[in-house]
Design a protein around this nucleic acid. Structure first.
Lengths: 276, 276
DNA sequence: GCAATAGTGTCTATCAGACAATATGTA
DNA sequence: TACATATTGTCTGATAGACACTATTGC
């Protein structure tokens, strides 16, 4: 089989970037690393790196994830009996505007990872070069208000994906490259996907309480939910939660039942995100 | 600004592939072209091509779309008063398994296009090299049954996106490369997105009747819907449909009111897809 | 008249949203 | 005791699903 004529197509570099989300102290946070070199030297950016020559895109994202956080990616396609540990990892979208990297033509396949609250990040041991940043701080309050950008619900990355600057503003605190837009798209994906899937459990430890799960929804959506209706909804949806047996008082107050994520991945009918 | 050291990263070719969907004779159909060269010579494949050196990903997809169908892509991000003509175009997912093309490392950014029923395709004038193929014929009946594959609702392209063979079988009628999987992902995206958005109107001409819109839903979902409840739902959702003024009898029977797509893009509450 | 489609009215079961009271821990 | 959280019950409004009938065209 002859190879392509190399002059027939332009060469690209392909990278993966990671939107790693977690819930810390009632706030949705994402992992950012400080850039050590130009361009955007000293600015915060999403973690990422080059895809290797014989490496699958998902494998590259999983490798970057373990390098940055120590988290083992949990492949939702693989038949694993229980979400052992590991984070949820899925492809988000691909960003390839010609001028998104001033050095050369780079196409980045962004991935979205959801993880339980973690110890402080360790980026090569340098404590000052990686941190969990509240999403609100990076994107501005308008991003919390809901479907602000053109994103709409779900993965609706329209043709505008590669269009210009991000929603998160262009100030000196904005993320490097087009990472503000990537982050905004990832956050919107997470917000919409917890509506109709059991993905919110990916933010929780293996065993968790109904209240902890509710606080995940409240942090991701930025709203307050009625504890009674929430309890009725999640315990009444077949396959969403299965009792783990024990109780815990780690949240204070009356002991709460512990649950594990059930086998159901799709919620029907979905959780309803309050209007505004 | 120094360029990267070329030895620091492997070279990739980047392509766009198109899942162009339409509704023809009560069936969901997709555009396929016959391959003229190895590999997979003579097999049907999704249309696509290389991204040019200074070209945005969405622009490359729009260019391929107009080349293959003559359709002008309608950018949902642009503030156009009315969906003039043109098809809906959005990014779908990216496929980059190392062995997906035996000749070299190719990463393909798949896009999804939705269009009204069109005249027969014209692929360079060769009538025998392009056609509208019923999706059911390409993917098998199981794909019509609903959320068969690992896809789940929405764009939930999990980490399994780049995993091996497609759902559509490996028989001699299967599409080239991993295009069966790409098609399956695109179909699932369309099926889920018409639930909660007004995207079904992208399958209709600029002016259409409630019955025509209902037949779009029935073709895409592969189910029968109650005409009365459907009529109540779509006419009762603010901003979904606006009366165009006239009537038509092109479907036979009593004249039906004509509508245009309203400004609303998100449907709240969504259309409910019947449970199998 | 017959066939085909369009359009409307009603009943019911289900469910989301709004509300308060009690239970059981820790400080 | 004071406090914090968990857990359960009820009412009401909105709506999806099921169902039958009339309206208006072309043949």
């Amino acid at each position: 089989m002859p190879a392509y004529d190399p002059s027939a197509f332009p060469p690209f570099a392909v990278t993966v970037d990671l939107v790693v989300l977690t819930v810390r102290r009632h706030a949705l946070c994402t992992l950012v690393v400080r850039r050590g070199e130009a361009p955007y030297q000293g600015r915060w950016a999403l973690p990422g790196g080059f895809v290797r020559a014989e490496e699958d895109l998902g494998a590259a994202a999983a490798r970057e994830l373990v390098e940055e956080t120590g988290l083992c990616a949990h492949d939702p396609a693989a038949p694993s009996p229980v979400p052992s540990n590991g984070a949820h990892l899925e492809q988000l979208a691909t960003y390839g505007a010609p001028d998104r990297d001033p050095r050369m033509r780079v196409v980045s396949v962004a991935h979205l990872a959801l993880a339980p609250d973690l110890p402080a990040p360790r980026a090569g041991g340098d404590a000052n070069s990686a941190r969990w940043a509240p999403v609100e701080e990076l994107l501005g309050a308008d991003a919390l208000a809901g479907t602000a950008g053109g994103g709409g619900i779900h993965t609706g990355v329209g043709a505008g994906t590669s269009a210009g600057a991000g929603d998160g503003g262009e100030g000196p605190d904005a993320l490097a490259f087009d990472h503000s837009r990537i982050l905004a798209d990832g956050v919107e994906r997470a917000r919409s996907k917890i509506e109709y899937s059991s993905l919110a459990t990916a933010f929780c430890p293996p065993e968790f309480t109904v209240g902890e799960l509710r606080r995940v929804y409240e942090a991701v959506w930025g709203v307050a939910l009625d504890p009674r209706n929430f309890h009725r909804k999640v315990t009444g949806t077949p396959g969403f939660l299965v009792p783990a047996g024990g109780t815990t008082t780690r949240q204070g107050g009356r002991p709460a039942q512990l649950f594990r994520a059930g086998g159901a991945t799709l919620l029907n009918p979905p959780m309803l995100r309050p209007e505004v």
